[in-house]
Nucleic acid binder design. Structure first.
Lengths: 184, 184
DNA sequence: ATACTATTTGAGTGTCCACTCTAATTTGAG
DNA sequence: CTCAAATTAGAGTGGACACTCAAATAGTAT
């Protein structure tokens, strides 16, 4: 895979994979549908990827990373910032949010690799929320802060989950209400 | 299906379906494994059920109903009761709880029948939480109560989602913290 | 006991899946 | 321009799946 054509095909396949997962979930995503959506035949797919799983892992990395707000602000953002960034992400990039949730739900059963990635990412997110909370309430016991941050992050995933079922669900309001979980 | 033998076989199949889902999840549950576990052949299975989906739907109904505490208490239960029942369900029937989440997310794609049931159940749950909250805080605007109840139920689903990825996640603590979302 | 069903059997069907293989075509470095 | 390597085409493979069917057996009402 060195020529330009190959790289372009690779990109088209990854994009197709992402949109397939978003539309049909992990289970509804097959080599056939990916290839059709990318305008490619299975032979080409397997010339560029070792397996379906490898393509999915690669395609999904974008979605997982997109859950976090600008990493440059790390160490400076307030809880408010983090929540707002999350709301914006879910509302503006609904597809990727849905991919994230679908992957999370399927994880554990299908692919330890996928599960590990989701869990590692989750921990990072919790840490960021914990730090922001501690910055806001310096006296708080760090363990309590982490506990509340974990509850908040999980709860936010629940809201996103619901929105992936009912698109009219207004994430923003609910997310802001949940903020109270952490700040009390 | 009128003879005793048939009814017994039916029960064995439903029990096998439940235990298969619990052990291997939805994807790992096939007609073959159900039949092996129930000591029955596919022909018998299809003599008693129209489809795999129908059997799963029937088997899972128990689990779905178990999300709520004793329906006789309807109109009497406190938020505390509802939360405790939910925690017990998730802790004791983790795999079925996961199935619940999975089916919810699969939304419309795989099985409209199953999805419809989940959505109706969700609405019922929100209503029950809303009523309990209003009983606890009689002065509260009903719309606000429903809004908070919906947030709480979604948040609880998020906690369950996380527990379906990480089995060591202690649902109880987090669920109780989230209770504060509704009661403030 | 008879006759009519319910039930069970187990081999079999068609479909869809991830993935492979060979041959043809395209690319671009020298 | 040449030629080897990269890329594509597209038919094909083997296995797993949900589901079917005709025949054998067992249950029960009369």
């Amino acid at each position: 895979m060195r020529y330009k054509a190959g790289l372009e095909t690779r990109d088209r396949i990854l994009e197709a994979t992402r949109s397939q997962i978003s539309e049909s979930g992990l289970e509804g995503t097959t080599i056939k549908t990916i290839c059709e959506s990318a305008g490619v035949l299975p032979g080409s797919f397997y010339n560029l990827f070792d397996s379906k799983e490898q393509a999915i892992l690669t395609a999904v990395r974008t979605a997982i990373d997109a859950v976090d707000p600008d990493p440059e602000h790390e160490g400076k953002d307030t809880l408010e910032d983090l929540i707002n960034a999350y709301i914006r992400f879910v509302e503006e990039q609904g597809d990727l949010a849905r991919v994230y949730i679908r992957i999370a739900v399927a994880a554990g059963q299908n692919s330890p690799e996928l599960t590990g990635r989701i869990l590692r990412h989750h921990e990072g997110r919790v840490k960021r929320f914990t730090d922001a909370l501690l910055r806001e309430k310096p006296g708080l016991d760090p363990e309590v802060a982490e506990f509340r941050a974990e509850a908040l992050v999980s709860a936010l995933n629940g809201v996103t989950l619901h929105r992936s079922i009912d698109a009219s669900f207004e994430v923003g309001q609910y997310a802001r209400l949940l903020l109270g979980v952490a700040t009390q």
